[in-house]
Design a protein around this nucleic acid. Structure first.
Lengths: 352, 352
DNA sequence: TTGAAAGCGCTAACAC
DNA sequence: GTGTTAGCGCTTTCAA
């Protein structure tokens, strides 16, 4: 266990004195021990051990090194999807012996921008974003050009040469909608907000494609925010010719819809069939277990972080790697809200 | 060879030159502007604005200042309770213009210890923990003595003079159990793991007190981990004289229990009544809406972070504040698993 | 292979 | 009020 003396921290010169060498030699040993004879190296290591020396990161950074810290910006940690993602990123970072500086953008692009600046000014070794900003600011391009690797998760930033980890949104949405069509539904609506974001757009695209492919008319219900879901549903479902099935575009929409349906006394799946994008906790314990397109937040975070550390390692060597885009699969989890009679056999919550 | 500084950052001396003053004057302005004439101050601020100067934190830290960063250690971010808490802490920190260094201890005390060391070695201005370690190591006492404010959430560290934000666990558990007793139950069991942790112990204490007060025998079922819940329940509930009611000691236990009951075909509340500690997402949408003791993760994080920033501010001035312990209230949320006929009227998820 | 010297950008302490 | 000086602990550069 590394001991740190809080009161007066051991510095490199303490170690140098102890080992009877120059600071520079200690520095060389600490940084890999190149061009240091075995004997001296041993002596220095013993001194380091004896004194409990830990390099001062502030001094290193001041000399232009990168911090052993990565930055992570997510829209919020109050959403289970993003926090599961953050958990995995943090986990991978810890395995690489890096710490994680977390900020939440509160889904606001301008907040995100200033947070990126703060992180860069702290010399983070890399940046992982679930970006709200859709297009690259000159500032961000500059950050990247200055050698800070950037990975975006779930979404992309246009005009930025960052690596990306995305999800099979089109395919997943198609699977969901085709399944509803297979159940015999003709009038299937699609509901969501944040429709300017790539994943939502892709899900709408998947919905639209599956509907057109079946020769069906599309009904894309876009709302401003999650708060507008209940009023819209109430109006649409109690109006003339309501749809017989609904495809909800993310977890929050699914949950809001469930609450609204309950309040309206609309029963799943007989009054309305439903499939949602994003699995939700306890989905199998609900009055009507919800059929969903599952995407793994854990995988998203883990994959993104691993990618980032590959980049951090690579940025030490001069060769430029091409832009990488990883796309993770989705899985249609059949439960009962779609109309399936599938018995629910999930004994325990899915493991993260 | 000239230095290849890709992003030539603006330093204090650039600003000084621009404003026609000494570096020290710029430093004074940046740090509050004491002893600087209004005119000079204005000129310096304009130069800062014009050049886009941002102080280099590494240099500040090297000079012995604290970083504008707080450290936060939680057991995991994959649990909604802890991530909601982390979200609030981060939010308060951002309002104070601090960043948040997050680590997860994976519920392991020794991991936590080394994470604290890493954070301290980065000169964090303060530390917020949901600690796994129950008693103060000499190391931690030393950290605190060196002037790093520490706040623990949800739990305490014995022998440490840290400030604490706790929850009315005893009272909450008593409310829950008394309610079950009020419903006429005599044999009420209490189930959970992590029984060495303060909040769980307090909940057991509340359970025990309420039972004894009613002249009832207690049945405390302690298991090693959440994985042991299903086997134990199966054995106990299908054995002779099963209890008629169950009090689950935290959210994970509640959820595991629900899954197990479903698999066992045991119906709430007629086969078994149940109240859980911790509200769970979607509780009102479950087959049987679950009655719970609600505690606010949001409040816990927010209160803890505010307390920490009070301490950070106070530590600038020399007067010592006494140890503070804040205890947040809980609320018994009546739904149906306890046997109540309460109609569920929650239209939307509770706001965080 | 080793060491000495020169700062990185900032601020405490002391001049003026 | 304002400026000058002297490092904080480390690594880059260059000399030995």
């Amino acid at each position: 266990m590394p001991k740190v003396n809080v009161s007066k921290r051991v510095t490199i010169s303490d170690v140098a004195r102890e080992a009877g060498v120059a600071q520079m030699t200690v520095s060389r040993v600490v940084n890999g021990g190149n061009y240091v004879s075995a004997g001296v190296q041993k002596r220095v290591r013993e001194a380091i051990e004896k004194l409990g020396y830990q390099p001062n990161e502030a001094a290193r950074i001041l000399k232009g090194q990168k911090a052993r810290i990565i930055g992570l910006i997510v829209p919020t940690l109050a959403d289970a999807f993003f926090s599961a993602c953050a958990n995995s990123v943090q986990d991978v970072a810890a395995r690489h012996d890096y710490m994680t500086l977390i900020q939440t953008s509160s889904s606001r692009a301008e907040v995100e921008t200033s947070e990126i600046d703060m992180m860069v000014s702290r010399n983070v070794a890399g940046l992982i974003l679930i970006p709200m900003e859709q297009k690259a600011s000159p500032r961000l391009a500059e950050v990247q050009a200055s050698g800070v690797p950037i990975v975006t998760l779930d979404r992309v930033i246009k005009g930025l040469n960052a690596n990306e980890v995305l999800v099979e949104n089109v395919q997943g949405a198609e699977d969901a909608v085709r399944h509803l069509i297979w159940h015999g539904h003709k009038k299937i609506a699609c509901l969501g907000y944040d429709t300017e974001l790539l994943p939502i757009q892709e899900r709408i695209e998947g919905y639209t494609h599956a509907m057109k492919e079946a020769g069906l008319q599309t009904y894309v219900w876009k709302v401003e925010s999650s708060k507008a879901i209940a009023p819209l549903l109430q109006r649409k479902l109690q109006g003339p010719q309501p749809p017989t099935a609904l495809f909800t575009l993310n977890n929050v929409t699914t949950i809001q819809t469930l609450h609204t349906l309950q309040a309206l006394g609309i029963r799943l799946p007989k009054d309305l069939a439903m499939v949602g994008f994003d699995d939700i906790d306890l989905a199998s314990l609900l009055t009507v277990p919800i059929t969903v397109v599952r995407q793994s937040a854990h995988e998203l975070g883990r994959t993104g972080a691993k990618l980032l550390f590959d980049m951090i390692r690579a940025s030490a060597s001069p060769k430029d790697a091409p832009k990488t885009r990883l796309v993770l699969p989705t899985e249609l989890v059949l439960r009962n809200s779609c109309g399936c009679k599938t018995p629910i056999t999930e004994l325990a919550p899915k493991s993260h």
